[in-house]
Design a protein around this nucleic acid. Structure first.
Lengths: 250, 250
DNA sequence: CTAGTGCACTGGTCGGACCAGTAGGCTACG
DNA sequence: CGTAGCCTACTGGTCCGACCAGTGCACTAG
């Protein structure tokens, strides 16, 4: 034994080297959002590769959400601020390929959302509390206005909570999973026969959650938020999968 | 108001159409992992686009982890089984670009891991319980063997728990975030002065968790698992950020 | 029957070409 | 002098044709 352990030399393709270098520049902050990359023809000189190679690299960077290019733009590709778009994309594929059930997605939301509430109770600012209040107020007004407005206000509430949690990862993941869930069932929600009743129930649930947050009882707020989500969504989950959600209620 | 609301016509590029079609075929299951795509030259006929366009599409699909191509392979690109690689990639970018702190990542792990334990308590099978036992046993043996073996056994434990939770999304997210955390501090762990003591403490924590799971006390198991993670990792978190983690302990 | 050799094909890269589009400078007109 | 409109020099998107190194398979020579 002993002797040098040779690593397998993976053939690294030219466009990958280009991707790596640009990626490194962006992640290290030497290229900041809003800045422009050189044009493709300029890049092919700097990297001394062909334009095809440059373009394949740019496609990869674009797929990762780091960069965007527009035809005709005299400036080169634009470095984008980070968005969870790529995260969203891969989670959506995950959901489709792995056939994630609605129950699993909601279970995940219940866990993350209630944890966000728990954390927010600890350290929410007054402004953030006011945001939550405002969102619920808008939900109240939107009972008549229809589901779009109501849904938007609901999203605003949960987003405010997620931000108040102080954890960006929780914030982004709740955001991504929420939009996947809504993508699955938003039309069912909009056409639910007991729509108005569900909205009113949801509003009072939200009010209870805010009260618990204001009172500083994080555990209660978390439990209430799980219950709120269960009551609002359970109707769209096949009956035999609901027990998995109820496991989080006690 | 009223009148038709025209949607902005986004110029959809040719390679995007190719991506969409192949993606749809994969996600709908009409192309299954292991199957081969036609060769690039064949694809350019089928889609009636140039090879450059085909290749850019393939780069995007590859970046999304759906496909892999090898030079010289007489078959075309291979359709891959889903892996969280793309998810991992975008979360890592997120962590770097948004400057996620170790505290945030650990907070996220504490939330997800303890929820997994809670769910696993409800519905673990005997085999899964045995897996956890076996993993802890290997951790016990590995105290002398060094950190690599110990870490691997630890990962096996948490993976068994995540699988027992019955929620694939939780399983994959814990996996991804765990590997990001380890990527940040694995060398610090390996060289920690009180390494052996930490390992022993961690083992007894894990034993307590398993006992709680076996006893069916999910709340206790969840709380213990948060405490276990806190005690094991808090030393690597800046002192002024630890309170965010302690918020999850009570 | 097997070992070895071609061959036909693959993906990776290159170079050049054309097109539609954009932005900004320039011109000509008011 | 100011401005409306054109012009041009660039951009990215797409196509074509070519070459290379590598792979797998069929065929051949032993």
């Amino acid at each position: 034994m002993g002797g040098p352990r040779f690593e397998p030399v993976r053939a690294v393709r030219a466009y990958e080297r280009v991707v790596e270098q640009v990626e490194e520049a962006i992640e290290s902050g030497s290229l900041t959002p809003g800045q422009r990359l050189p044009s493709e023809r300029e890049l092919m000189v700097q990297f001394s590769v062909s334009r095809s190679t440059v373009r394949e690299a740019l496609r990869v960077l674009q797929a990762r959400g780091l960069v965007r290019s527009r035809p005709g733009d005299p400036n080169g590709a634009e470095v984008l601020p980070f968005t969870p778009a790529a995260l969203h994309k891969s989670m959506t594929t995950l959901a489709r390929v792995e056939e994630l059930s609605l129950a699993e997605l909601l279970q995940f939301r219940m866990v993350l959302d209630s944890s966000a509430i728990l954390l927010a109770t600890r350290q929410r600012s007054e402004e953030q509390l006011a945001e939550m209040d405002a969102a619920v107020a808008r939900m109240r007004e939107a009972v008549e206005a229809g589901h779009d407005t109501f849904g938007a206000a609901d999203v605003a509430f949960h987003d405010a909570v997620a931000r108040a949690s102080g954890n960006k990862l929780i914030q982004i993941c709740t955001d991504v999973v929420r939009s996947i869930v809504l993508g699955l069932i938003s039309e069912k929600i909009a056409t639910a026969p007991d729509r108005a009743a569900l909205m009113r129930q949801s509003i009072s649930h939200h009010e209870e959650v805010i009260a618990a947050v204001r009172a500083g009882d994080g555990r209660l707020a978390a439990r209430l938020s799980r219950k709120a989500m269960y009551d609002y969504y359970a109707g769209y989950v096949p009956a035999d999968e609901r027990s998995a959600l109820r496991a989080l209620l006690e």
